[in-house]
Amino acid sequence: MDSLVVLVLCLSCLLLLSLWRQSSGRGKLPPGPTPLPVIGNILQIGIKDISKSLTNLSKVYGPVFTLYFGLKPIVVLHGYEAVKEALIDLGEEFSGRGIFPLAERANRGFGIVFSNGKKWKEIRRFSLMTLRNFGMGKRSIEDRVQEEARCLVEELRKTKASPCDPTFILGCAPCNVICSIIFHKRFDYKDQQFLNLMEKLNENIKILSSPWIQICNNFSPIIDYFPGTHNKLLKNVAFMKSYILEKVKEHQESMDMNNPQDFIDCFLMKMEKEKHNQPSEFTIESLENTAVDLFGAGTETTSTTLRYALLLLLKHPEVTAKVQEEIERVIGRNRSPCMQDRSHMPYTDAVVHEVQRYIDLLPTSLPHAVTCDIKFRNYLIPKGTTILISLTSVLHDNKEFPNPEMFDPHHFLDEGGNFKKSKYFMPFSAGKRICVGEALAGMELFLFLTSILQNFNLKSLVDPKNLDTTPVVNGFASVPPFYQLCFIPV
């Protein structure tokens, strides 16, 4: 009986604490739906499609509103004006990374994606500088992407125009580009180590996009005490870190300090320079996690976009025909596509942009946080508050993009057929937390897609009208449904 009384008292205290925290903070924060004790607004949000729920709530509470995930307040920004004001106009104040408990377990605050403060700034600055020195957006990395595009075309030829699921092959190409940047090595598509790495990356994007992960991140005790797919994700990350550590040891034994070959060499050189400046942010643990982040951000996002792009091109054969006509006119058949071609191919450029806009790969991006107490639109948001960005509300804005739910390359073309930029184009987020590999991803999408369409016609196994382009999961990332196609050599 005594234990029951204690339990009831504990629960009562928890409920009172929950109510007090919510009521004391709500006077400062933007308005929002009334949260339930302990669980907050979790029942009012469709976990399978958070973005749709945010759109519905914005119609009631406006472009800036507050939700509670458990006891934790989260300020939501919906629509271009609110997102721009926060991420661009007040970029420094909104540059923090929001709480992501599962990532905390995986990387302990290291790396480039989930770190904060001085650690994040130094690692991000170093990573950007190193990638630029190796030619991100310049010639040397373009050579690597072109080489991988040629290998991709050869792998597709091996399908002999038979029906195939493109998931694996389209994942190999961007993964190999990242391998060449980090390890100075590309792998054969049949290499077992490479296959294991690909498998872990593919599993992780599916797990991260599941409703279960949303629950884990908002009720963090689940991570330590409950079984579930989150444990598989943590094991996959541990596998990748151990693999990278092996490569780091190989580099330490063979590195030429006067001739760095890749990202690992550059990081080890930085560690050597910083060894007298303790404590340094440049450690082996930081290198492991930064490399894992580059793999995660640079492989599955690009391969998922490529997979979605081919599905949309199957669905819209008239678009595919126009792209192939432009390829034939500008590039021809006797040389590989290059980035200089893009400025002469406005329709193809528009298609690449429209694919990214339409699929809305990361509907709410990753959570941000404010780095200080900030007054925002007459609300006071306390330091450390998590900020949720609705990228969907920007990419699918119906004023900027008429009929935003329709796939239409003319969203990025003017009346004369010239490519038209849009400030609403934010597939990689915006501001200080914009994806480090934005330029690389854009290069890969253009070169891989043009190389495929230069060499193959795409054949659907069903009537294009019957192809479903609805994402199968739409949590962290929008993942396309399973499909097969035939690559018919031109």
Rank of each mutant, 00 (worst) to 15 (best):
S24A: 07
T159E: 05
L201M: 08
E326D: 05
I178R: 07
S162K: 14
D256A: 14
F425C: 04
V83R: 02
D414E: 07
P260C: 11
L447R: 01
C486T: 09
G228H: 06
V473L: 14
C338S: 14
G46S: 09
I74G: 02
K383I: 04
E85P: 02
I331Q: 03
G475P: 06
Q252D: 05
T348G: 01
T371K: 06
M406F: 15
L11G: 09
F487E: 00
T301R: 13
K459L: 07
M255T: 13
S58R: 10
L71M: 10
R144L: 14
N116E: 08
S140G: 11
G117F: 05
L29E: 02
C10R: 01
L131T: 06
P404V: 04
K200L: 14
L7G: 08
L306T: 02
P346S: 07
R335G: 04
G135R: 09
L449C: 07
P101V: 06
S242Y: 09
L197S: 01
I50V: 12
M426Y: 07
H276T: 08
F482D: 15
L453V: 08
T348R: 00
I123E: 04
K158G: 08
F428L: 06
N217K: 12
M443V: 10
L440M: 08
I359H: 05
F94V: 06
G70K: 01
G437A: 07
G416T: 14
S478T: 13
M269A: 13
L16N: 00
V394T: 13
M269F: 09
G98L: 06
P464H: 08
P489G: 05
R21T: 09
A149V: 02
R186C: 02
K235M: 09
L234P: 04
V76L: 03
F446G: 00
E203H: 06
E92W: 09
V83E: 01
G117C: 05
G296Q: 15
L306F: 03
K423F: 13
I215V: 12
L71N: 14
E272C: 13
V330D: 01
V472C: 13
I74V: 15
T283W: 04
H411E: 00
S220G: 14
I452P: 00
E354M: 01
N277C: 13
T305Y: 06
P37I: 02
D262L: 01
F114Q: 13
S254I: 13
Q261K: 15
K158V: 05
A149I: 02
P63G: 11
Q146M: 11
V370G: 04
G137H: 15
G40L: 00
S180L: 04
W212T: 03
T320A: 15
G96R: 06
S422E: 03
F194E: 00
E104R: 13
E142L: 02
P33D: 00
N378S: 12
I181V: 11
A350G: 04
F114L: 12
H368T: 14
I264L: 10
R124P: 05
M255S: 06
K119P: 07
Y61N: 03
I181S: 02
Q193G: 09
F194Y: 11
H251R: 13
D89K: 04
Y308Q: 05
Q324S: 12
A149G: 05
I182R: 01
G298I: 11
N231P: 05
M240G: 02
Q324T: 08
P480L: 03
